[in-house]
Amino acid sequence: MSDVPTMDLDQLVAIDVHTHVHRSVRGETHRAAGEDMGEYFGIGSMPRYSVSELADYYRERKMAAVVFGVDSVSQTGEEMVPGNEEIAELAAEHADVLIPFASIDPGRGAAGVRAARRLITEHGVRGFKFHPNTQGFFPNDRAAYPLYEVIAEHGLIALFHSGQTGVGAGSPGGGGIRLKYSNPLHVDDVAVDFPDLDIILAHPSFPWQDEALSVATHKPRVHIDLSGWSPKYFPPQLVQYANSLLKDKVLFGSDFPVITPDRWMKDFAGLPIKDEVRPKIMKDNAARLLGLAGPAQPA
């Protein structure tokens, strides 16, 4: 990939591939980051960070972070706050620790495709976050394929939320959020139709963990991030595969701010992960996938 962010990999202890920004530097906040999410994760009121505040947080910890919002305008009627441009522009000011992704609701159609191309060529985003539940679409819906074409054309990453979500949890009717959209098997079609597209399945994919492991072992460019759950709750088969068949394709992610990297890493230390695999998960796999490091060396 081109335009690699300037950062000193040797000085970083980890790369967190899954963090959210919920507050604009103009003071606006993302309404989707509501109390239901805070209650779901047991943290009370949802903390809201701007891009610059998030950069400071990760710099203190000698970590880098992929940062993004979620554009669900087709379902909410509201624009994402902060917008993709703000996230990308501020991330560029903190390129020692931040890597900007964008989010385009597939419901935007051709306008969204044009916006994606502009975000890549003019703002240097490195990937795109999709949230099928809040965007109300199946990842293998052909209406989304023009977006994937642009992402694949530029050699970037498509990151898909998978499994249950805290958005709408506990509210009547789950806040209208339908869980069916986030089965990883729908992403398997995308991996077939876009064989050169790098894909991340975000989160332990409850209740479809085995499906996610199957897709990631079968499709060479599909990865799994471990965000959104404390590692002490990871299902045994996820730990087993992370230690073996998927040791080069599993990525540290926190889902900050709902889970802090400090808590995640503390709980991860208690898992029976092989010593030679831990640095792969914490940094090396992400560095390679993001184009910050060379290809993996044979074990």
Rank of each mutant, 00 (worst) to 15 (best):
M265V: 10
S74R: 10
S2M: 08
Y57I: 09
Y233L: 13
K274Y: 08
K247C: 15
L119R: 02
V67F: 01
A95R: 11
E39D: 14
I157K: 04
P100W: 10
P132A: 07
F256E: 08
V66A: 06
G228Y: 01
V150K: 01
V25H: 15
V167S: 02
T165F: 08
I15W: 01
K266W: 15
M7T: 11
P106E: 14
I273H: 06
L201C: 06
L9K: 12
E211H: 12
P220M: 11
S72D: 06
S205K: 04
P204M: 11
T217C: 11
D196I: 09
R114F: 09
G163C: 04
I259F: 13
I199M: 05
F256Y: 09
H123T: 06
E60D: 09
D71H: 10
A202Y: 04
A286Y: 02
M1L: 06
F206E: 06
L179T: 05
G270F: 13
L289R: 01
S24A: 12
G168S: 10
K280Y: 07
L238C: 15
Y148R: 01
A191L: 00
T19C: 03
A286K: 06
V222T: 10
R221I: 13
A102W: 03
I273L: 15
L98P: 00
I200H: 00
A92G: 09
M7A: 07
V250T: 05
G270P: 08
R114D: 14
S254W: 08
Q164F: 08
R278F: 15
V215D: 00
D189H: 09
N140V: 01
S214D: 12
L292M: 13
N133A: 11
K283S: 07
A91C: 11
N140P: 01
M63Y: 05
L290K: 00
E79N: 15
A92H: 05
G155I: 06
P195W: 15
E79T: 14
V25A: 12
V4T: 10
K247W: 07
Y40N: 14
D196Q: 15
P261W: 04
R178V: 12
V215E: 00
D193L: 14
